[in-house]
Amino acid sequence: MEPGSVENLCVVYRSHDFLVVNKHWDVRIDSKAWRETLTLQKQLRHRFPELADPDTCYGFRCAGMGHRFCHQLDFSTSGALCVALNKAAAGSAYRCFKDRRVTKAYLALVRGHIQESRVTISYAIGKNSTEGRTHTMCIEGTQGCENPKPSLTELVVLEHGLYGGDPVSKVLLQPLTGRTHQLRVHCSALGHPIVGDLTYGQASGREDQPFRMMLHAFYLRVPTCTERVEACTPDPFVPALDACWSPHTLLQPLDTLIQVLRTAPDPGPTEGGAGPCSPSAPLPGPGQPPLPPAKPPETEAQRASCLQWLSEWTLEPDN
């Protein structure tokens, strides 16, 4: 996967109601700063000018696209991102995210060789109030951690190898909750920060070597009421694309886990959820059925958030 440009947006799924794109690393989804030279919003406008909303007083050049991003990816994270092409589709996708019916899986390279084949990471995550770190998150029990919330990530080790001569593990991550920076914080708390993570990585000076943060949204499935939106993006963490990465021990074939992900049943609809960023059941191992997650009833605040989310559909992004 080459660096992002306005012209090289990769679409991995398209229907009448949805797109799934393979977002480049170090690209923002959208931006309010006019100086932002490249955003996913601009890539979409370039690739699909027919999707631009003509009904704005500013005309096409400054018009908002007739779409809505169904979820978020960090600036530094690459991979599958779902875009709804109309308001009805956006509402349907929102319901899937809120009811934890969405299946997500990420690939990452992390520092060190993880000895366990599978790890469940359950550190509660809160906002960091420490001066100079207020833009970051932290785990419960650390200094300055405010309002930590339960968080759960499943990690499966795929390969051991070396990155630039240092021991590294390639892992598959499934977030079972949707906290800000959850995968990055959980990997760091486990003692195996993501390679190239300048915020939560090691302070040893080694993070100046990787050309990107090695976190990629690999698989996404959104079972809406009208269609099953499903996309699997190419694996960017292979030696052919990055000569610094040299795997030497295979622990779990990725193809096997892809098949498990694809054949796992969609979680059934529920009467509640934990918000638009909450994924579904944990990744099952071969022969293991997915575990049903706990789903508290929808609160008034969550319902208000949903209504606000949908009402903003017609708002024009300030680029």
Rank of each mutant, 00 (worst) to 15 (best):
A304E: 14
G165Y: 00
H160K: 06
Y200D: 03
D235A: 06
A281P: 07
N147A: 15
G164K: 01
G196F: 13
R212G: 07
L198P: 05
K32F: 08
K87F: 01
M1S: 02
L109D: 04
G161H: 12
S188P: 01
R101L: 06
D55N: 14
Y58W: 13
T233Y: 04
P284W: 02
S122H: 08
A294E: 06
D74C: 03
L9W: 04
P276Y: 06
E146T: 07
D208G: 05
L81R: 07
L307D: 05
W313H: 03
K32T: 15
L190R: 02
L254E: 10
Q174M: 15
T263R: 13
A217T: 09
D26Y: 11
D242T: 12
S31P: 05
A89R: 01
P234K: 01
L257N: 02
A88M: 04
S129P: 07
T180V: 10
C138F: 08
K170V: 08
C138N: 14
R179K: 06
T177S: 11
L251H: 13
H216Y: 06
H135R: 14
G268N: 00
T249Q: 09
T37Y: 14
G132I: 03
Q209S: 08
P223H: 00
V21I: 15
W309S: 14
R206S: 12
W245C: 14
S15T: 02
S305M: 13
Q259V: 03
H67C: 13
T130M: 12
F97R: 10
L307G: 00
T39S: 15
L109N: 04
P239G: 14
V83L: 05
G165L: 10
E146Y: 00
G64L: 10
Q41T: 05
M214T: 12
S311E: 14
A217E: 01
A243L: 13
D17M: 00
A124F: 14
S188Q: 08
V11Y: 00
F75K: 09
P223L: 03
L241H: 11
H113E: 03
F75E: 08
T314R: 14
T256F: 09
M214L: 10
S278V: 08
P3W: 05
K98T: 12
D53L: 08
W245Q: 05
L162R: 15
Q252Y: 10
P236V: 07
S129G: 08
L190F: 10
P239D: 13
G66P: 01
T256Y: 04
A231N: 02
E159F: 09
M214R: 12
H216L: 05
L173S: 08
D242A: 05
G79T: 08
P293Y: 02
E207R: 13
L40W: 06
C306S: 10
W245M: 12
V119P: 00
F97T: 04
Q115K: 13
A217S: 15
G191S: 09
L40M: 12
